[in-house]
């Protein structure tokens, strides 16, 4: 759901950029003060870049890919990890691959990095003790993606690019399915696999499972 250049007027894009910048700055502080697993962060960022190219077909002649903010947040043990990793991925995509606009980079970071990571991560924490790691990962990732899609629809409605109600309806409908098959299932699969195969590479907070 990378918003391209031209879909949001510059004045509005600047506001999203400012909000995103505050969160990105805070995520850098988080990395400096609370995070030490350098190779884990780089590997996750590369993996999320790669998986974002893997569009999975869904009904209605549409497709969607995993965005990965919730996965990063769960494996790094903090939503700030999701913000930082999505920022790295989205900057490279916008500058080198014309995937997501440069002028709307802030909006894309806000939606897929900030909103998705925070909502998804805290949903995961709230549900983990009750439904287990797999179910909580799936629910958090699904909710994170759908919320990001609805935020995107709202921003595009404010911009006058999408009508509000149909925009929310179609973005919500497509991403409810994408959130299940691409985001939710893959997040649950990767989280449970890493916890089983090599939990020692994760920070202590991410190893808690109850």
């Amino acid at each position: 759901m990378h918003i391209p250049d031209g879909f949001i007027p510059l004045s509005q894009a600047a506001i999203y950029a400012l909000i995103a910048l505050i969160f990105v700055a805070r995520s850098l502080r988080w990395a400096r003060e609370e995070f030490g697993e350098v190779p884990l962060l780089a590997t996750l960022a590369a993996g999320i870049f790669a998986i974002q190219a893997l569009n999975i077909p869904i009904p209605w002649g549409t497709s969607g890919h995993m965005t990965g903010g919730v996965l990063a947040a769960i494996l790094l043990g903090s939503p700030w990890g999701g913000v930082l990793i999505l920022t790295l991925v989205l900057v490279v995509q916008a500058l080198f691959f014309a995937d997501g606009g440069i002028t709307v980079l802030g909006a894309n970071i806000l939606n897929m990095g900030v909103i998705s990571s925070f909502l998804g991560y805290y949903t995961y924490l709230a549900l983990r003790g009750r439904v287990g790691v797999a179910g909580a990962s799936l629910a958090g990732a699904w909710l994170g993606l759908v919320a990001a899609a609805l935020a995107t629809a709202l921003e595009l409605a404010i911009a006058g690019t999408f009508p509000l109600r149909e925009g929310l309806l179609f973005m919500g409908m497509y991403h409810a399915v994408i959130g299940l098959v691409a985001e939710g299932a893959l997040t649950a699969l990767v989280v449970t696999t890493v916890l089983r195969v090599s939990p020692e590479i994760l920070p202590a907070r991410a190893r808690e499972v109850a």
């Binding site: 759901m1 990378h2 918003i3 391209p4 031209g6 879909f7 190219a53 893997l54 569009n55 999975i56 077909p57 869904i58 209605w60 002649g61 549409t62 497709s63 969607g64 890919h65 899609a149 995107t152 629809a153 595009l156 006058g160 690019t161 999408f162 009508p163 149909e166 925009g167 179609f170 973005m171 497509y174 991403h175 994408i178």
Partner: peptide, 21 residues
Amino acid sequence: ASPNPDGLEKTAEKFESARGI
């Protein structure tokens, strides 16, 4: 990867206001 448009592109195809940008 599926060559189908993604959720945002597919939504944009439906609205005149989002076409041709």
